[in-house]
């Protein structure tokens, strides 16, 4: 299976690990990621105002590129996934946006929301299958208690994101089980880390992060994993009272699959 891949700005800079481990693991699982050409920043936040057009164009270009290749568009960063998936939904449902965006972009043929946006985790679940990942795991992370941190952007609004049950998600927990570790369920796993508020009001972000980390710790977690660079930053840099190691899920996948040793061995 080959996907069009949209890495996004942060995965090229501060979150290189999320990208690198993601690519290597996909390769090991027989999934080809073709980075789309000349992609532009998605804007990082979905423009909620109904009259925003220009701020959605870069996402539409990426979607059109995937459509041109006849591939699904795979994302890894939660924010990119959120923006691109929602803009795609708008292109499917909002006549006004569809008309104006196409008039502006002057594509070979109008883009009408044909591409399918898939998050890396959804690819693992629906394309590879967690059972197959379990079979492919060489270094199961036995006994490690891991808290899945979903945050906001993957789950909400559930009507559009259709990622998982927004209040009781299981996809990352299933992933944790597949790599041999033990998932920890805690109430704050789908509550906000503070996001960009860190720039405006650091104490507000710290308050959020402390609540999340405490909730995970109380449930017995030894580690938190996430799919979002901004969540990663907040959970790490804005933790004050409590602290847990925070990792990208792709890094654990990479470890569990034993890719490193394979390469060293070869």
């Amino acid at each position: 299976m080959t996907y069009s891949y949209y890495p996004g700005c942060t995965l090229k800079t501060k979150a290189k690990d999320l990208d690198r481990y993601g690519r290597l693991s996909a390769e090991a699982l027989g999934v080809t990621l073709e980075e789309i050409e000349n992609w532009q920043c998605c804007g990082a936040v979905y423009p909620q105002a109904s009259d925003e057009i220009a701020t959605k164009l870069s996402a539409i270009r990426a979607l059109d590129a995937a459509k041109g290749k006849g591939q699904k568009l795979l994302t890894l960063c939660s924010a990119c996934h959120h923006v691109i998936k929602r803009v795609n939904h708008d292109m499917q449902t909002d006549d006004n946006l569809r008309l104006k965006a196409n008039n502006y972009l002057k594509l070979d043929e109008p883009y009408l929301g044909e591409a399918e946006v898939v998050h890396y985790l959804e690819m693992l679940r629906d394309e590879v299958g967690f059972d197959n990942i379990k079979k492919a795991v060489k270094n199961p992370l036995k006994g490690v208690k891991i808290a899945a941190y979903y945050g906001c952007l993957l789950l909400r609004p559930s009507g559009v994101m259709a990622f998982d049950n927004p209040e009781c998600p299981t996809i990352i927990e299933d992933f944790i089980k597949a790599i041999g570790a033990t998932p920890v369920i805690y109430s704050q796993r789908n509550e906000c880390c503070g996001g960009y508020i860190s720039l405006e009001d650091k104490p507000q972000a710290q308050k959020r992060v402390d609540a999340i980390v405490k909730s995970a710790m109380d449930a017995g977690a030894e580690m938190i994993i996430t799919a979002c660079p901004l969540c990663m930053y907040n959970l790490d840099a804005n933790a004050t009272e409590h602290r847990l190691p925070v990792k990208y899920f792709t890094e654990l996948l990479y470890q569990a699959l034993g890719i490193e040793e394979e390469k060293e061995g070869a």
């Binding site: 805690y186 109430s187 509550e191 909730s215 109380d218």
Partner: peptide, 8 residues
């Protein structure tokens, strides 16, 4: 109520 969390 907006949210119930388990705390201990």
């Amino acid at each position: 109520v907006g949210k119930v969390t388990v705390e201990g």
